Simulated scan of single mutants.
Amino acid sequence: MDKKIEHIDSVTGKVLLFGGVYSNLQALEALKVVAGKEGIPPENCLCTGDIVGYCAQPEETVQLFKLWGAKSIVGNVEIQLREGAEDCGCDFREGSRCDSFSQLWYPYAQSKLSKSSLSFIGELPDHITFTYAGKKVMVAHGSYSNVSEFIYKSTPWNIKAPHFKNSGSDVIIAGHCGLPFKHERGNKLWLNPGVIGMPANDGSPQVWYCIIDDSDGTFTYNHYNLDYNYRLTSKLMQNGLLPQEYARTIITGIWDNTEILPAVESGLQGFGIQL
């Protein structure tokens, strides 16, 4: 199937980058407030996909996203939902803990979404491209070639490099792996803003986003923590239908397991994010 790519000629001013809302309504509400305080218009707020996921309010989250008017590409979850698939398409190893957890949260999300929400996510593009401070930028979920590919900071550059060539990009903004990072080589930048729906396995309930800025004529970027009502999010997840391990992670900031992580990122569990 051909990719659906939304091309924007150019973007100026601050841009708010985030990913993995994961049905976390409280985090999305808090991020919307940040955008307002920073003076960032909805069209300059970009999500790397997976608006829907582990938390308890998928329908409310999608509807708020629509009302806000922010932009998003599809994550693997949106692709699976719009196609009526039976699993989340996260590329978890079959039989793993993450795979077993997905057999709870994915059908829960599937059962809660209205036709209106499914129609909305069905229209999301695979990628968004734009020019910013003279650089060609491409927004992806996992990678340019594979929506479910896990790319981390420790992922070798020779794996990242073809995605710049194939997409014709100077900057790739991507999500999926759940951890914020930056990786520069020459004039190329791979930038993961982090996700707002779940902590980054760093021992803090705060979540992560990024703001890029062209006010000085160059491409600058900074990652930030987001405070939100995580206790309410966790409480709503304790409904007997969702994995309680994820409800605990919302509070503790520690993942239940690190089975999807490379050795480097696994070893940093609870030690904070190294940016």
Results as ranks from 00 to 15, higher is better:
Val137Pro: 00
Glu265His: 11
Glu86Asn: 07
Glu245Gln: 15
Ala161Tyr: 13
Cys47Gly: 02
Pro199Gln: 03
Arg248His: 14
Ile273Arg: 08
Gly240Cys: 08
Tyr224Ile: 04
Gln57Phe: 13
Ile196Trp: 08
Cys47Ser: 11
Val137Phe: 01
Lys14Ala: 03
Pro58Leu: 08
Phe120His: 13
Ile211Phe: 05
Ser266Cys: 12
Ile8Tyr: 02
Pro162Gln: 12
Val34Gln: 04
Phe164Ser: 12
Lys136Leu: 01
Tyr106Val: 06
Val15Ile: 08
Lys14Phe: 03
Glu78Thr: 11
Leu275Ala: 10
Asp202Cys: 10
Leu226Trp: 08
Gly69Gln: 07
Tyr22Ser: 14
Lys3Ala: 00
Leu242Phe: 03
Asp213Tyr: 05
Pro162Met: 11
Ile211Leu: 05
Asp99Gly: 09
Gly122Glu: 01
Tyr224Cys: 07
Tyr224Lys: 12
Arg82Phe: 12
Gln26Val: 03
Glu259Gln: 13
Tyr132Phe: 15
Leu17Pro: 00
Cys88Tyr: 02
Ser114Trp: 11
His127Thr: 00
Glu29Gln: 15
Leu28Cys: 08
Thr12Gln: 07
Thr258His: 11
Val139Arg: 00
Asp91Ser: 14
Lys66Trp: 04
Tyr108Arg: 05
Asp9Thr: 09
Asp9Cys: 02
Glu6Ile: 00
Ile250Pro: 00
Gly253Tyr: 02
Met237Ile: 01
Tyr230Trp: 11
Cys47Glu: 01
Gly168Cys: 04
Arg82Glu: 11
Gln80Tyr: 05
Gly217His: 07
Tyr246Met: 11
Ile211Arg: 01
Asp170Phe: 07
Ala200Gly: 12
Ala30Thr: 10
